[in-house]
Design a protein around this nucleic acid. Structure first.
Length: 268
DNA sequence: GCCTCATGTTGAT
DNA sequence: TCAACCTGAGGCT
């Protein structure tokens, strides 16, 4: 269940468990076995995330790096193993983490790590991120802001939930072309993500509903989606908008389901 | 048990 | 624009 907040949280949790250790690294499923053997027993040098990419450093100077991308269905879990053997297993004493179904699990060099990060736009979860770099791409693009927010080379770590929710929270029409998006709108989107995503890391779920629109404030039943959070529009198609009551709309845009309120989201 | 869908990305058509 | 990849959960029979 991976947007950028998930990967950042995993990096934190991995460091909490394995910092200062020399973990056993294995590949029960076998597909990462050769690489796992090279890292097995090396000192843990720290996990970090950038966008939806997770990097596990090993060795005294972090000269070995495991690059992980969960893709749509990958998972990294610390609880009881499921039936399927894991691609990657990390363990120290009674502690373990198991990776299943990743899009990427590869041993890379520090130089290759730099190259992966170089392809990504600014990540709102990183303190040194510069929203101006993203704006330079956005305001020259004829693509919709909904498409641009999903482009990891424009902005890193945003997925289908944050995309839909940040556009709703800022009342922006998802189909506005980047070239027609107001600069103030972009800055509002960015600062909203900088505020929201750390909460996603802290709570390990995406909640976007403001206090004045919570179930308690509105006198309605909580409607927590499968993804585990309380949201305005994501997967709420055909339900009434929490703010205006209009029917939430959905449409497949570039292969992904977009959700929005046509009444609330009119800004450009 | 079978089918569909999923917070993603790549590569072929 | 679409298929492929990889796995788990939920809905259906």
């Amino acid at each position: 269940m991976p947007e950028g907040h998930t990967l950042r949280r995993l990096a934190q949790d991995l460091n909490a468990v394995f910092a200062g250790t020399r973990p056993r690294i294995s590949s029960p499923q076998g597909r990462f076995a050769d690489s796992a053997a090279l890292v097995d027993g090396q000192p843990w040098a720290g996990a970090d995330s950038y966008g939806k990419h997770l990097f596990l450093g090993f060795g005294d100077r972090s000269e070995l790096v495991i690059h992980i991308h969960l893709g749509l269905i990958g998972s990294l879990r610390f609880d009881q193993p499921l039936a399927a053997p894991a691609r990657l297993r990390i363990e120290v004493d009674e502690h373990f983490a198991e990776l299943r179904g990743p899009q990427t699990c590869a041993l890379i060099t520090p130089a290759e790590l730099v190259a992966v990060v170089a392809r990504l736009g600014p990540d709102p979860l990183r303190a040194d991120a510069d929203p101006e770099i993203a704006w330079q791409r956005i305001h020259r693009s004829g693509k919709s802001i909904a498409a641009l927010l999903m482009d990891q080379s424009v902005i890193a770590g945003i997925g289908n939930v944050y995309r839909a929710e940040v556009l709703f929270r800022n009342r922006i029409n998802p189909f506005t072309a980047g070239s027609r998006l107001k600069r103030t709108s972009w800055l509002a989107i960015w600062s909203d993500l900088v505020q929201l995503m750390p909460l996603g890391v802290r709570d390990n779920r995406i909640d976007t509903v403001r206090p004045e629109h919570t179930p308690e404030a509105m006198g309605r039943d909580p409607r927590v989606d499968d993804h585990g959070g309380e949201v305005y529009v994501y997967r709420r198609n055909d339900l009434p908008c929490l703010v205006c009551g209009s029917r939430i709309r959905t449409k497949v845009v570039e292969g992904r389901n977009l959700f929005w309120c046509g009444n609330c989201q009119r800004r450009s």
